[in-house]
Computed example of a mutant assay.
Amino acid sequence: MEDYHLLHPLLPNTITAATVDVPTSTNPSDDDNIKLVSSNSKIILRLFFIVVVGVLSLWANHEASKGFQIKIQNNAAADSAASRQFDLLYVSNDKATRLVLKTSKFVETILYPNPNTTQPKKQVNRVTLGLTSRNLTHMVMVESLKEHEFVLLLSPSIFMEETNVDHAMLRAVQNGMSRVWLYNNNAPKSLIDGMVEYISGLAGLGGGAAAEDFSGGGNQPESDNICWKDENPRAVAHFLNYCEVYKKGFIQRLNQGMRVGWNDRTVEDAIGMPAQHVCASYMSQKKHHLSTSSPLESRAQ
C-alpha cells in the first residue's frame, strides 16, 4: 500500500486553466466612481480599525487597573502524589486561579471597603501560587522578591496529611492573600499573625473572630497590657475583633497605619485611646465572660 505524506497536494499538479470573460467598462465616469468607492471603503476601514484598537486599549487598561497577574507553578516532583493531585484538582481546571481571585476579593473587601476614599490600596502587580517540593513549617508561606510581586508557597503536606484537601487549600490561600494585601512596615509578627487569623475567622475558616468567643485566649502580657503581643494568633484575633466592635473601621485604620510605618502608637491611633485602656477593658470583659461561662450580654460602644 502506498504511503501518503501529510504534505502531499490534494489536487493534481496539472490544472486546466479556465477562461472567464469579465465585462469591462468603457465609461471613464464609471472608473472614477469605482475608485471613489474603493477609497472611501479604505478610509472607513482605517477609522474602524483605529476605533477598535482604542476601545481594546481602554478595556485592557481598565481590566489591568482592577486586578493583577496570576501565575500557577508546580515545583514538586512530577511523580509525587502531591504534584499529581495539585495538577488534577487545581491546575487542569483552573481552580487554583479562581481560588486566588476569590480569596483576594474577600480580603480586599475587608481591608479596602471603599476604594474611592483617601485610604490608598496596596499595590499588587503579580501573585504566583506554587506548590513546593518539600514540606514547610506552615501550610503556606509568602515571599516578595520583587516590589509589588508576591509568591504564595504551598506545602505538599496539604495533599499528603490533610483529610479535607479543599478546606486546607482554601485556608492556606486565604491566609496567603491576607498577608499579600496587609501592609507590613515592621509591624510585630504577633499582630500580623493575629490579623491574618482575624480575616480567616470572618471567612469561616477558624479563628477567634466572633465577639463572644474567648476560646482563643492565651497568656496576655499583664506587665504592659499590650494585647497584640500575645503569641497565640487566635487570642490576638479576638482582641482585634473587640477593637472593631468598639470602634467600627478599626481594622482598616490599623492597616493604613502600618502603611505609614509601625510604632507602638499605631494601634492607639486606630482606636483613639491609649493601649493600656483598651487592653484593660478587653481583659475585664474576657475575665467576666470566663467567670460566668456565658455569652457577653453587651458589647463596647
Rank of each mutant, 00 (worst) to 15 (best):
residue 140 V to R: 06
residue 232 N to L: 02
residue 176 G to V: 02
residue 248 K to L: 11
residue 33 N to R: 12
residue 100 V to D: 09
residue 266 T to G: 09
residue 144 S to A: 08
residue 191 L to I: 03
residue 237 A to L: 01
residue 147 E to Q: 14
residue 87 D to N: 15
residue 160 M to A: 11
residue 46 R to W: 06
residue 144 S to Q: 12
residue 55 V to L: 15
residue 220 Q to V: 10
residue 76 A to T: 00
residue 39 S to V: 02
residue 260 V to R: 12
residue 89 L to A: 03
residue 17 A to W: 05
residue 108 E to Y: 04
residue 35 K to L: 13
residue 209 A to Q: 08
residue 298 S to W: 11
residue 219 N to K: 04
residue 189 K to G: 00
residue 58 L to C: 13
residue 276 Q to I: 08
residue 140 V to S: 09
residue 282 Y to C: 07
residue 48 F to P: 00
residue 83 S to T: 04
residue 106 F to C: 02
residue 256 Q to Y: 04
residue 153 L to P: 00
residue 160 M to T: 15
residue 103 T to Q: 15
residue 293 S to Y: 06
residue 183 Y to Q: 01
residue 201 G to R: 04
residue 102 K to M: 13
residue 296 L to D: 07
residue 116 N to L: 08
residue 44 I to P: 00
residue 104 S to Y: 07
residue 272 G to F: 04
residue 236 V to H: 00
residue 57 S to T: 13
residue 226 I to L: 04
residue 142 V to S: 02
residue 194 G to Y: 00
residue 75 N to A: 14
residue 275 A to V: 09
residue 59 W to F: 09
residue 113 P to L: 03
residue 46 R to F: 05
residue 151 V to H: 06
residue 34 I to N: 08
residue 131 L to N: 02
residue 36 L to K: 15
residue 19 T to W: 07
residue 264 D to T: 15
residue 247 K to E: 12
residue 77 A to P: 01
residue 159 F to Q: 06
residue 5 H to M: 08
residue 255 N to R: 01
residue 295 P to L: 11
residue 290 L to M: 10
residue 104 S to T: 13
residue 98 R to V: 01
residue 20 V to I: 15
residue 254 L to D: 07
residue 76 A to V: 00
residue 181 W to G: 03
residue 66 K to P: 06
residue 277 H to L: 04
residue 40 N to Y: 04
residue 204 G to W: 06
residue 80 S to W: 04
residue 121 K to F: 05
residue 263 N to D: 15
residue 288 H to V: 04
residue 77 A to F: 05
residue 283 M to C: 03
residue 238 H to V: 10
residue 144 S to N: 12
residue 190 S to F: 03
residue 122 K to G: 02
residue 209 A to W: 12
residue 67 G to R: 06
residue 297 E to A: 13
residue 138 H to Q: 14
residue 22 V to I: 15
residue 205 L to V: 10
residue 237 A to K: 10
residue 254 L to P: 11
residue 75 N to I: 02
residue 286 K to D: 03
residue 295 P to E: 13
residue 215 S to D: 04
